[in-house]
Design a protein around this nucleic acid. Sequence first.
DNA 1: CGCCGGTGTGGGATCGATCCCATGTGGAGG
DNA 2: CCTCCACATGGGATCGATCCCACACCGGCG
Lengths: 339, 339
Amino acid sequence: MTAEGVARRATIREVAEAAGVSRSTASRALTGHGYVAPPVRDRVRAVAHDLGYVPDATARHLRRQASQSIGVLLSDLNNPFYAGLAAGISAQARKRQYTMMLADDGGSAGVEAEAAETFVALRVAGVIVTPVSAELGAYLGRQRIPVVEVDRQFSAGVCDAVLVDNGSAAQRVTQQLIGIGHRRIALVIDEMHWTTGRDRLAGYRAAFAAAGVPLDESLVVTAGWDVEAARVGIRALLTRPDPPTAVFAANNVLAEAAFRTAAELGRSIPGELSLVSFDDVPWMSMVTPGVTAVRQDTVALGEAAVSQLIDRIQAPLAPVRTVLLSASVVSRGSTAPPA
Amino acid sequence: MTAEGVARRATIREVAEAAGVSRSTASRALTGHGYVAPPVRDRVRAVAHDLGYVPDATARHLRRQASQSIGVLLSDLNNPFYAGLAAGISAQARKRQYTMMLADDGGSAGVEAEAAETFVALRVAGVIVTPVSAELGAYLGRQRIPVVEVDRQFSAGVCDAVLVDNGSAAQRVTQQLIGIGHRRIALVIDEMHWTTGRDRLAGYRAAFAAAGVPLDESLVVTAGWDVEAARVGIRALLTRPDPPTAVFAANNVLAEAAFRTAAELGRSIPGELSLVSFDDVPWMSMVTPGVTAVRQDTVALGEAAVSQLIDRIQAPLAPVRTVLLSASVVSRGSTAPPA
DNA sequence: CGCCGGTGTGGGATCGATCCCATGTGGAGG
DNA sequence: CCTCCACATGGGATCGATCCCACACCGGCG
């Protein structure tokens, strides 16, 4: 951080002149590529430091046709799941000497498309995305920009992906509920076309099948993304004549809606209703009783995504890979045998 | 999003050739600057669209010496306060046609300095930061890169800042506690050199002074940043022979530590202990009783920061400004008159 | 008839860093 | 003594887009 209050920023040409060498030599001295006599190298570096020279990444990028930035496109930074993912990606990107362009699409396909074009304009080295459609993968694929899908997968076989083993985790947590005696277990789910929803549903079904317990299909409720709509759906579910004895919420937003609705209806947890969540967020360990949840390690997810992306950048033609991370069930007090 | 699977990305030269004009004309047609005959303009644009041409932002930036990216440096994306801020900044930046380079310094001055250099290398148009030292403002100032400090201020008079009116909000919430009869109100604070800590402390003191209530200085506890250390400090506070009847936690992390510690010690809230927090985060409305908190509008904070930064970019020599946003107190069940 | 100004287009330099290639030097070996 | 190679440096083109300037064309007016 050295530099006197120069009017304009120093360029490599100025460094070269101040050190009495050519631009070429200065470049070699600073980057370490090619021959430079050690004393010259040291002199150039000292001069650069004194001038507060910081190489222009855009110029370097233009010449080398290779950037050190990755684009990251997430659905909602206000949701702790995505925020954690961003933190994990950010940390790992920094370790690997990449910078991160972040955009938040709020779950909108239009914004997603717009962000994709921005990433192309910036010529990012690659993109990490929690996709909302298959468009982005296809578009960036055509532009020869590597893409890694995280959390959800829309472009299987086309893009790499880093996912959580939704099926297995959902099955385990459902199995726990069945194991302690629940038979009427509702699944409250966002929607079933995305891999997250589909696989969590499949795991839920598999647990019933494995236990030989019949499944009441009417207990699978699609609650969408709108929190208010979810609360309405859950209220209807809980006030049925034959209500479920347990609710499995397929994401943290739905778990919040379920928790709040249960409180409004005066249903005690776990006495009258057991609750489990897919995705563990801070409030679940703050409330009493704590909410049993499937914990996805967002940091590991982010790190794996960055690693996968960098591998892909270095080997564009390697076969497409899908990485599955396991998730663990954190048991807290929100589950108990049915009354 | 049109483009056949071309091997290489189209450049403006290729667009120009395909349209039968020169690069200059193509540039004018696409950017809208300068004379172009309307039919030519339309033809060039059609060709560009067919080729899936996306202008190279780095080349444009290099030539124009002006970028459309801003750098954003925050302390901790896993903290909902910073995540919300990032969301607000992201949304506003997108509206204003800027892209956002995001970094997370984890509260470390070393990482902050490193990120600052990266932002210089990328020649960002400006930087928004929740600072951890005065270094960044000074360094980027020397590099003639506009900086806006958010939430905390280290470079008063040098950089613009967008802050919350910490003093007033802290005074109001303290006053509420005094008003319902509390006299022994502890302030648990991170540290007192940053403006956030200093001003919240000042507000707390001002409330006592205004009410003419003497203040027991031993009730002001510096708990630092480490959650475990905070819990130890709070436990010591609550197990004193003359414990406080209310705790004012100066940020959401400390509020969490206080909430958990009270539960561990079996102190009922608000029966035996009232709790208020500076900074409202989701769990505070999920727990029972809810926690009374000062709500900072992170979206407004982020939007104001972006607006301020863009104003500064457009008028580098305008006088330095500090914008104060007010905060509101959200009353929930965690406060009651002392026993 | 020639000059002027408005309209429209193209050539070439430029931003900053990189890197291929040519050039230069000195010492060693034939 | 000359050649050859390792070492060391500089010149100039290049990445893609922009933009200043020169130029060409045309109609109108003195």
